[in-house]
Simulated scan of single mutants.
Amino acid sequence: MLIGIPKEILAEEKRVAAIPDTVRKFVDLGFNVAVESKAGEGILISDEEYEMAGATVIADADRLYAESDLVLKVKQPVFNAQFETHEVEMLHDGCTLITFLHPATPDNHEIVKRLRDKNVTAFTMDGIPRISRAQRMDALSSMSTVTGYKSVLMAANHMAKFIPMIGTAIGTVKPAAFLVVGAGVVGLQAIATAKRLGGVVKAMDIRKNACTEAESLGAKVVEFDIPEELAVGAGGYAKALENEWIEIEQGILAPHVEAADVVILSALVPGEIAPVLVSGKMVSAMNPGSVIMDVSVDQGGNCEVTEPGRFIQRSGVNVCGIQNIPGRMAVHASWLYANNMYYYVENLFKNGDQIPDLNDEIVKASMVTHKGVILHEGALKAMRLN
């Protein structure tokens, strides 16, 4: 079986799905590995290093896709301008794809349908369940760690203010006010980073345990009293709320959003569209020059005015909808992701003979399409096909 590692072509995406260390491990498992030329360029890894690890380097992306039985990517397939065709169409019928697909996101529904029609067996790395044996495969947590850290740095770069309190002969500059919505892996890392930079941080999460963790890092918790059975689902993840509860949450958030210099939005429900928690009206009430980092954009975004893939201004407020923030810290992000990917593939083919175990709990939770059928529950719900 040939594993293909293409060069990512999404704008500003420098990550790669395999590094030389994981190529060696794949070879040790009995796989052949092909890497597109310059795939590792963005993380300072040369073609020669991949070859030394046992990979074949292929210059032509079209050939790599056509010959690969299993394609490992970082981001969803997109239109390839060089070959004037979509990357899904470059996959051969019946092959397997593993990547971040975010299949519930409306912008990706057409991609999911293309994969179904191409008879591709597709797995999404954001569908891995939160169970103990899946921890080494949990790419979402890995990338969330990078995102939480980098999102604060990107916000700081777009602010025309100091973050820490600064004492001068003229007077004292007040510290920047941060609001972090969603205290999962992204949010906790954002809180820690903002605190290190000297910001004053508030946080909100519908889960009591997450609020406790946020408080332990020095954030002041914005209280939201909701029954635990409505807020917490399997594995400790947040559950999707009914509209009436979302409206209550918006009302509680509104004054805190207005007072914030930086808002980090990372409220997600696994496999579903992200809830809209910050309305356009709330954005217009913020001070000019404030920054919103909507890092939940891959699943639709928590802010009503976010434009996926773009950094825009609305009412003088900077709103970031950049979709691949970890791609801006590509070296460590690729090291994490490539290892997550290796352990996922190792588990997928754990029965030997390079035959996938499609009955495995982790595999079933992350499967999107198989034999011409869409199987992912979140995608089916979002596409209203269930």
Rank of each mutant, 00 (worst) to 15 (best):
G309T: 05
S46W: 08
M329L: 13
K161A: 13
L230Y: 14
V363E: 04
Q82T: 13
V185G: 09
N339H: 15
G321H: 08
A177F: 11
S334K: 02
V88W: 03
K150Y: 03
A365N: 02
A338T: 09
V78T: 04
V283H: 08
E49S: 08
F79V: 02
R384W: 01
T124W: 04
G321N: 08
T99P: 00
N386L: 05
E377A: 12
A177L: 12
V27G: 12
R133D: 12
V88L: 05
H332I: 04
N324V: 00
R24E: 14
I226V: 15
Q354V: 14
N157D: 13
G54R: 04
K38P: 01
I43Q: 14
R114T: 01
I43P: 15
G236N: 04
S279L: 10
T369Y: 12
S334E: 03
N32S: 10
K239N: 04
I312T: 15
E215K: 15
F224D: 05
D138T: 02
R136W: 00
Y337Q: 01
E272I: 02
A260D: 10
A219T: 11
N209V: 12
V295M: 14
A39N: 08
N386W: 06
E242P: 03
I166L: 15
I191M: 04
T121H: 14
E229R: 12
Y344H: 13
